[in-house]
Nucleic acid binder design. Structure first.
Lengths: 165, 165
DNA sequence: GCGATAATATCAGTGCTCGAATATTCGAAC
DNA sequence: GTTCGAATATTCGAGCACTGATATTATCGC
């Protein structure tokens, strides 16, 4: 029998799941783990990770439109529309027609939304601390610069997948 | 007039979207951009990014079960079950009952699946190159180590959100 | 053999995410 | 005033992703 040996499946941090893996896969794996941990932390507050993200953006830029939040979060307007509808239904956010443009709906957090966002931040700050733990200032700077470069570089490449060269 | 000034919404790479932002947000933003770019690259092959991920895993570890692939991808068995069903329906993957355990279904790529995976890799290799562009060996090593640490640290903290410790 | 436990796989329900298509609003061109 | 174009917002259909619940299979203990 040739296929009698069990396939050696590595644990996270080993083999292709470790530092030998593709950088794109490692980025995906790290993000998936981080997203899952965030979802766990916000679970009992009935807040999803995307809802937390949208609330953070609306809080940082009050009066932003759906399209603006979509660009901020690197998501599509359709997705934002759905998330915002859920947030509005839960009374965490309000929409109002812009006085300047009848089509634009400017958003703001309600008092309940702001209070809830504060509670969410308490949970996620522990995670933020773990992300920077055991990192020297130099290393953190290198990582921040790379993450920003990936975001700007790949997101600017929206539809134009020109063959580099 | 207090609220007459338009809110200054930064472009990607500036303000809170830049190196001053939370590390967790930067990780999410980078991953979202990378995921979107991957989806774009595989669009005309009718392969989604999760399908590409599952096919890569089954190819690397032939005979793996759904539960094993779930652990490899940091996804739930339910999600894998759905993705695998779609892949099987498209004839890219086969499932067979394990001779050792009647409940386990061991998976393998079909010839068409392997050929398709090869084409997917052609597309994504360009992305992989862009991820490492302008990175010194030292910087790349630091980033790899951090990504692996985040993945192992946060994923091991599945349900046990014990306060530090 | 029978029950308890564990691992695997699936179904149902909710929410996120995209592409495609549609409708509305405003400004510019005619 | 009408038409065209751009920007915004929504609806629809498909796929992804989670929790919770359920069913099947194998192992351990009686």
């Amino acid at each position: 029998m040739d296929d009698n040996r069990p396939p050696p499946i590595p644990e996270p941090g080993e083999g292709k799941r470790g530092e030998q893996g593709h950088l794109g896969y490692l980025l995906l794996q790290a993000s998936a783990a981080s997203r899952l941990a965030t979802a766990r932390a916000l679970e009992d507050l009935d807040v999803t990770q995307p809802q937390f993200l949208v609330m953070t953006m609306v809080n940082a830029y009050p009066g932003a439109s759906g399209a603006e939040v979509a660009r901020l979060t690197v998501l599509t307007p359709q997705t934002i529309s759905l998330i915002v509808a859920n947030l509005e239904r839960a009374g965490r956010l309000t929409r109002a027609i812009s006085p300047e443009h009848g089509r634009i709906q400017r958003m703001e957090l309600t008092d309940a939304g702001r209070a809830l966002l504060a509670r969410c931040r308490e949970r996620t700050q522990a995670m933020e601390g773990r992300l920077t733990a055991a990192l020297s200032p130099d290393e953190e700077r290198i990582i921040r610069r790379w993450l920003v470069a990936v975001a700007t570089r790949e997101s600017s490449r929206d539809g134009s997948l020109a063959s580099d060269g």
